[in-house]
Amino acid sequence: MSNDIFKLGGLEFESRLLTGTGKYADDSVIPDVCKASGSQIITVALRRVDLESETGNVMDFIPKHMQLLPNTSGARTAEEAVRIARLAKAMGCGNWIKIEVISDNKYLLPDGYETAKATEILTKEGFVVLPYVNADLYIARSLVDAGAAAVMPLGAPIGTNRGLKTREMVRILIDEIDLPIIVDAGIGRPSEACEAMEMGADACLVNTAIATASDPALMGKAFSRAVKAGRDAYLSGPGAKHSHAKASSPLTGFLHEG
């Protein structure tokens, strides 16, 4: 559907697949992935950006047309996330920022409270803030209040490729939160991205599954198609799915008898 525009941070995008830059065997494959996946938004960890490097800077491999989404990977508190966001802006990475505040290196689960605090500070400074959080309605509401541009709930713990384990909670966010819902983290297969989109998620961010595939560009293409298929299915209004069986002899049939 050509008129299905994805609006985010005051800009319009055709692709609803966001990609990343981490975990690649070779960053030189990134342009191919961007091309094959049609992705228009790409996240990059500021901690890995090295503008002075002569030995290879990840930024050199990001096609110019991509919307850059620096992230605060490594931040353990709201304060660190805010400082990383400001550094990113100062380094010329623009005013979009994906907030990641993680102080648990065992599971890499995001800290919702600190994330909301950082979101509030940074939106006031004019950043377009995309916070990565647990799929939790209360956190999502506080992010709406804080001025976030979207809510990015995790499908499963980051890097696990376990799929859409938080499906019921993501569904609630889709129903209740009046901001784009971008499922971020945990999606390991295109079919899982498709399912998230079919449910009504506005977009998916996929990094590990693409970066660690044997053929990242081909996997990027597969995700692109899956995201599109899921979106089309959502827009076309799939038939209602019943959670319980329909009795062939209606239980209230007697009301209509005689």
């Binding site: 960053d27 901690r47 890995r48 950006v49 490097s53 490594g74």
Partner: peptide, 10 residues
Amino acid sequence: QPVFKDWHPL
């Protein structure tokens, strides 16, 4: 991929 930089001092 050899990774040189993995932290940006605050």
